[in-house]
Write a protein that binds this DNA or RNA. Structure first.
Length: 730
DNA sequence: AGCACGCCGACT
DNA sequence: GTCGGCGTGCTC
C-alpha cells in the first residue's frame, strides 16, 4: 500500500530528516518549502517539508497541519540552505530557522505579529524611592508612555524595575502590537547622478557583461575610500533591474550605513522601485512583512545585514557584498555561517553575478583573485581627486605621552582646531578605564563569570563586564585591605573624552561608542552633529571608522593601535591593517591633505607601515607567506571545536579524550590542542578548543563525522560547538 | 531542544 | 516506604 509521504526538517537540534505520512486532507495543499506542524515524541513541533514522494508509510505518523498556503522557501533557497547545513555541519532545521524571520519556527505556530508591553505613567502622587526607578519613570513620563523595547534601548535590563513600578502603582502596563516604524515614511533624499571615471566605467562594463550573460561570476571591487564604489553598485543594480531581475545588497550593519540606504532610495524610489531593508533593528512583524513582500516579488531591491543572504528573492540577478572584509558577516554563535562566502555559493547556484566591495579586501578574497576564481576590479583614485592623507607613526618608545596622547598629536590637534577643522580620535576600548586597581595592596576587580577584569564606567559609576554585561558598584574602600586607593588604570573612550576636555576647554567634543549609541537615532544624531560641524573632536571606538563620510575631518588620531596587534589570533595583523586603513581614509576626504597619527610601540610592524602608505598590495605580499608557511587560511582550512561546560576539569578531560580519538583517524589533518580558549571562562562556562587544520577540505569534512561519533560518548554537560572557517578564536 | 524514563539520597 | 534530584536516550 502506497501513500504520499513527506521528509521534514524539524526545528530541533537533530541531524537527520524525519518522514511522515501526508493525510489526504493536506495532500492538495502541502508543497515543498511550506511549514508543517508535526507530532514529535509527545509534543508537536514545526518543521519544513523538503521532499514529497510516494511510498509505504504504514509505520509513520501523520502530519498534523500545513501552516502555509504558499511555500515560504522556494527550491533555489532550499538548495542553498541544504548546502549550508552540509558545509557548516549544522542541523538543517536550525539552519532554516536562522534563514526565516524570527518566530516562524516556534511550536506555537503563530505567525509574525509580535506584541510587547507598553507602559504609561499613572498616579503622579506616588513617587518611588530608588534613583533608577525615578530615572526610568520620569523618562517614560517625558515620552508620554513607552514600549518595553524602547525602554530597554535606553536603560540596560529594566525589567525588574518596571515590574516594581507597576507593583507600586505608578506605571500602567498593557500589551500591544509592537510598533512598526519603517523608514519608508521618511522623505526620499535627492539623487545626484555622477559621471563615472575610466576605472569605474571599466569595472561597471565587466559587471554588465556578466549580468547580460546571466552567468555566475564573482568580482572583487577594490576601491580606496572615496573612490566611488557606491556609484558603481547603483549602476550595476540599475542594469540588473532593467533585465527584470532583482538585486541583493549586503552591508555589515544597516544602522551604521544609512548613507548607502539613502543613495539607493534616492536613485530607485523615483523610478517606482520598492526597497526593503532587513536587519536586526526590525521588529518581528516588520521583518515578516518585508519577507513576505520580497517572496511575493513585490520588491526588487533588498538591502540587509548578514542574514539577508537568505532573502527569498525569486529572480535574483546580482548580489553585492559591501565592505566584504568585515567580520560581522560571520555569525559567531549557533549556526556559524559566513554571509560573504554564502553569497558566492548562492551566486554559483543561481547563477548570477556577485560583487565583493572593499577598500581593504580580505586576504581570502584577494587570494581568490590571485587563483583566478574571482575577477579583480581596481578603483585606484579618489573621485574628488583628494589625495590620500599623510600618515605618521608616532613612536611611543621615544616620544612622551601626556595622559594617553603623544605631544605631537596634541600639537596637531591644536593646529587643526585653530584652523576650524575637525578631528577624529579612535580608541578601540569603551568605558573610562579597562580596570580598577587598589594601589595599596594590588587588588583588581574581575568578572565572576568571565576570566577578565571589569571595565570602569565613570558616567554610570559602575564596573561592567564587556563580555557578559555583569555590573557592580565601585567600592569606596578596598575589600581586601580596607584602603581608599582604588584607582582607574589605563584609558577608554570615556577617559579620553575627559582628558580632551581638560586639554582643549574650548573644543566641542562628542563620543561615539556602544554606550552613546544605545538608543535609536542616537548614532545618527552624532553623525549629524559632525556633518553640521557642531562637533570639533569626535572620540570613538571602531564604529567611527565605518560607513560615514565626514568631509571636514582633517586629522585622525589612533590610540592603542598595539592592542589590536597583540590579540592571540593569526588574523590580528589583517584586522589591524584593515581598521587602520579604513580610519585613515576618513581624513581629508574633501579637503585633501589630511593627516593621520598612529601612536604605537611597534612602528616597524608591517601592518602599520603598510597602512601608513596605503599599501594594500604590500600588506598582502607580506602577510600571505606567513599564512602559507603555517598552513593558515587562505592557504589552508580550519575547523575549531569548542568545548564548554560548568566544570573546567570535565571540559578539559572531554576535549583531551576527543582529541585522542580524532588523532587515530586524522590522516592529513593536523590536530592542535586541546588548549584553553583565549577567554577560558566566559559567561560562567569553562571553554577549551581543538583546532583542526588541513591543506584541503575533504579530509576535514570526513573528520567531522568522527567528531559526531566521539561526541556522542561525552558527558552531556559538556557542549561541543563546531566552527567551520573560524574568523576569531574567542 | 524537550520530555520521558530510570536509578540513588532525604523527608512525612 | 515515596518525593524528587538530574544523568541518559529518543523523537518519523
Amino acid at each position: 500500500m502506497t501513500s504520499l509521504l513527506a521528509d521534514i526538517a524539524v526545528n530541533a537540534p537533530v541531524r537527520n530528516l524525519f518522514s511522515y505520512r501526508v493525510p489526504a486532507a493536506l495532500a492538495e495543499k502541502l508543497r515543498v518549502g511550506a511549514r508543517v506542524q508535526a507530532p514529535f515524541g509527545r509534543r508537536s513541533i514545526v518543521g519544513v517539508a523538503v521532499r514529497l514522494y510516494q511510498g509505504d508509510g504504514s509505520e509513520l505518523k501523520e502530519l498534523r497541519d500545513c501552516l502555509d498556503e504558499a511555500p515560504l522557501l522556494d527550491d533555489q533557497l532550499l538548495r542553498l540552505l541544504r548546502w549550508a547545513a552540509d558545509y557548516y555541519h549544522h542541523p538543517f532545521g536550525q539552519v532554516i530557522k536562522n534563514a526565516l524571520p524570527g518566530g516562524l519556527m516556534r511550536s506555537s505556530g503563530q505567525t509574525g505579529i509580535a506584541t510587547e508591553y507598553l507602559y504609561r505613567r499613572i498616579n503622579r502622587d506616588i513617587c518611588p524611592a530608588g534613583r533608577r526607578q525615578q530615572q526610568i519613570l520620569s523618562w517614560i513620563e517625558q515620552q508620554g508612555g513607552a514600549a518595553a523595547g524602547q525602554i530597554r534601548a535606553e536603560f540596560p535590563s529594566p525589567t525588574t524595575v518596571l515590574k516594581r513600578l507597576v507593583e507600586l502603582g505608578c506605571l500602567e502596563q498593557s500589551e500591544g502590537e509592537r510598533l512598526r516604524d519603517p523608514f519608508l515614511l521618511e522623505p526620499v533624499p535627492s539623487d545626484k547622478q555622477l559621471t563615472l571615471n575610466d576605472a569605474q566605467q571599466q569595472a561597471l562594463e565587466q559587471m554588465i557583461d556578466a549580468l547580460s550573460a546571466r552567468r555566475f561570476q564573482s568580482f572583487l571591487l577594490h576601491g580606496v575610500t572615496g573612490s566611488g564604489k557606491t556609484e558603481v553598485y547603483l549602476r550595476a543594480v540599475a542594469d540588473c533591474l532593467q533585465q527584470g531581475r532583482q538585486a541583493l545588497i549586503l552591508v555589515p550593519e544597516i544602522s551604521l550605513t544609512p548613507q548607502l540606504v539613502s543613495r539607493f532610495r534616492a536613485r530607485f524610489e523615483p523610478l517606482g522601485e520598492q526597497i526593503a531593508t532587513l536587519h536586526s533593528g526590525l521588529s518581528g512583524g516588520e521583518r515578516y512583512d518585508a519577507w513576505r513582500a520580497i517572496s511575493r516579488g513585490q520588491v526588487n531591491i533588498v538591502i540587509g545585514a548578514r542574514s539577508a543572504i537568505f532573502a527569498p528573492l525569486p529572480q535574483l540577478g546580482l548580489i553585492i557584498v559591501d565592505e566584504e572584509h568585515d567580520g560581522s558577516y560571520k555569525q559567531g554563535e549557533g549556526f556559524r555561517y559566513h554571509a560573504r562566502d554564502l553569497a558566492l555559493v548562492r551566486g554559483q547556484q543561481q547563477p548570477c553575478a556577485v560583487v565583493l566591495g572593499s577598500a581593504t579586501p580580505s586576504l581570502a578574497s584577494s587570494y581568490r583573485c590571485e587563483q583566478g576564481s574571482c575577477t579583480l576590479l581596481l578603483l585606484p583614485e579618489r573621485v574628488h581627486a583628494g589625495a590620500l592623507p599623510a600618515v605618521e607613526l608616532v613612536d611611543l618608545r621615544t616620544e612622551a605621552l601626556r595622559g594617553v596622547l603623544a605631544e605631537s598629536l596634541i600639537t596637531a590637534i591644536t593646529t587643526a582646531l585653530e584652523q576650524r577643522q575637525q578631528v577624529l580620535l579612535l580608541l578601540n576600548r569603551r568605558g573610562f578605564a579597562p580596570f580598577l586597581l587598589c594601589t595599596d595592596c594590588g587588588t583588581s576587580f574581575h568578572c565572576p563569570n568571565c576570566e577578565i577584569t571589569l571595565t570602569y564606567h565613570q558616567r554610570r559609576r559602575r564596573m561592567i563586564c564587556h563580555y557578559c554585561d555583569y555590573q557592580d558598584q565601585v567600592p569606596d574602600i578596598c575589600p581586601a585591605c580596607r584602603g581608599e586607593s582604588i584607582t582607574p588604570q589605563g584609558a577608554g573612550t570615556e577617559r579620553l573624552e575627559e582628558d580632551l576636555a581638560g586639554l582643549f576647554p574650548a573644543a566641542r567634543i562628542a563620543r561615539m561608542d556602544r554606550d552613546t549609541t544605545r538608543t535609536k537615532g542616537s548614532h545618527q544624531r552624532i553623525v549629524n552633529g559632525m556633518m553640521a560641524e557642531e562637533v570639533d573632536i569626535l572620540v570613538g571606538t571602531q564604529m567611527i571608522a565605518k560607513g560615514h563620510d565626514f568631509p571636514n575631518v582633517a586629522l585622525v588620531g589612533v590610540l592603542g593601535a598595539d592592542s589590536l596587534l597583540n590579540l592571540p589570533d593569526f588574523r590580528c595583523a589583517e584586522r589591524s591593517f584593515a581598521l587602520l586603513t579604513q580610519v585613515a581614509g576618513r581624513a581629508g576626504r574633501s579637503l585633501g591633505g589630511g593627516k593621520v597619527f598612529i601612536q604605537t610601540y611597534h612602528p616597524e610592524h608591517f601592518s602599520l607601515t603598510c597602512a601608513a602608505t596605503h599599501d594594500v598590495e604590500g600588506f598582502y605580499q607580506q602577510e600571505l607567506p606567513f599564512r602559507r608557511e603555517l598552513g593558515y587560511p587562505p592557504c589552508g582550512h580550519l575547523v575549531n571545536l569548542i568545548f564548554s561546560g560548568n566544570n573546567g576539569d570535565q571540559v578539559n578531560n572531554s576535549a583531551t579524550q576527543l582529541a585522542r580519538r580524532l588523532q587515530a583517524v586524522a590522516g592529513d589533518v593536523e590536530i592542535l590542542g586541546p588548549s584553553p580558549c583565549p577567554l577560558t571562562r566566559l559567561r560562567g562556562k569553562y571553554r577549551y578548543q581543538i583546532l583542526l587544520k588541513s591543506p584541503s577540505r575533504p579530509p576535514l569534512r570526513r573528520l567531522l563525522f568522527a567528531v559526531d561519533n566521539a561526541a556522542a560518548e561525552l558527558p552531556r554537560q559538556v557542549a561541543i560547538h563546531i566552527d567551520i572557517d573560524p574568523l576569531d578564536m574567542f
